[in-house]
Design a protein around this nucleic acid. Structure first.
Length: 281
DNA sequence: GGCCAGGCCTCGC
DNA sequence: GCGAGGCATGGC
């Protein structure tokens, strides 16, 4: 079975990552199988034993793509243990979300996905991302995988389209993916990414405050979306996006303000625990 | 069929 | 600088 890569980890739960809402192209097939599309590839992860997972890719691909994508070099257990013992809500949330990691997603894909996300439900965001991918992404044929993998949920998948492919669409075509008034935001973003005016490789080198201000200055991007892009794509783990769910949590359990200074480098992970807990418990 | 969704823009002060 | 109103469409 060395065609596939086996991972042992005591802090990795792809099922929870699917449900954590940070990515829109994950699907839990059953209790032990999760599939996803990222970086133009289809991946299935099978849980084969406690803390043991089989990835439907070679070791080489795992090392090049997925290890970094799932942030597997970071010690999340240590972060989990750093949680304030007196913070019973956060402790409960982290126990509930034990195994959630923050993905390092593609910057452009995350940028567009979170523009789409504003004032929409997660299922609805997923639909639009899927439609946009089908419209101008590349076809990916689902691989036939042996046991312990199971059949993919579809015969073909589509990669998230590159900036140039989206930039070639008309505003009307973008609207037809169901994104409504956000189409103009996407249209403008695509032009900027396609022309190189917004360059992910350059942006990666920017410090937090510069990057945040730059994102905020973009059409269609406010505080919440900027922080999500920084957390889920740029992997700035200190960012703490506040949406309607987080606002409810902070108001209910933290008297209106969560002290992010307590977790300067990991507040975003705490945010993800809370968000998942509140939505799924 | 009505209500709300991982918010942001514009306008008026 | 800040609060209120408006907003396209999809899911439940």
């Amino acid at each position: 079975m060395n065609r596939f890569y086996e991972l042992e980890s005591d802090f990795f739960d792809p099922q929870l990552i699917t449900l954590s809402g940070q990515a829109f192209r994950f699907k839990n097939l059953d209790d032990n199988h999760t599939e996803l599309v990222a970086f133009g590839k289809y991946l299935q992860i099978a849980k084969t034993a406690k803390n043991t997972y089989l990835f439907s890719c070679s070791e080489d691909e795992f090392e090049k793509i997925w290890k970094d994508y799932f942030d597997l070099d970071r010690d999340y257990r240590k972060i989990y243990e750093s949680i304030d013992k007196d913070d019973s809500y956060l402790k409960a949330a982290a126990d509930f979300g034990y195994g959630i990691r923050i993905l390092k997603q593609d910057i452009w894909e995350t940028y567009i996905s979170y523009i789409i996300s504003q004032r929409r439900s997660i299922p609805s965001i997923t639909t639009s991302v899927d439609r946009l991918s089908r419209l101008c992404g590349n076809k990916i044929t689902a691989p036939k995988l042996p046991d312990p993998f199971i059949e993919a949920s579809a015969k073909e998948y589509y990669s998230f389209p590159c900036p140039k492919a989206v930039a070639a669409l008309t505003l009307k075509e973008i609207e037809e993916t169901g994104v409504g008034y956000r189409a103009q935001y996407i249209y403008e973003a695509a032009q900027k990414f396609a022309s190189g005016e917004l360059d992910p490789d350059k942006l990666k080198k920017a410090d937090d405050s510069f990057l945040y201000d730059l994102l905020l200055s973009q059409f269609g991007i406010g505080k919440k979306v900027a922080n999500c892009i920084m957390l889920f794509a740029f992997h700035r783990l200190g960012r703490f996006p506040i949406d309607v769910w987080m606002e409810r949590i902070v108001n209910t359990y933290y008297k209106g303000e969560f002290d992010t200074d307590r977790y300067p480098d990991t507040a975003g992970i705490m945010q993800q625990f809370m968000f998942y807990y509140e939505r799924n418990r």
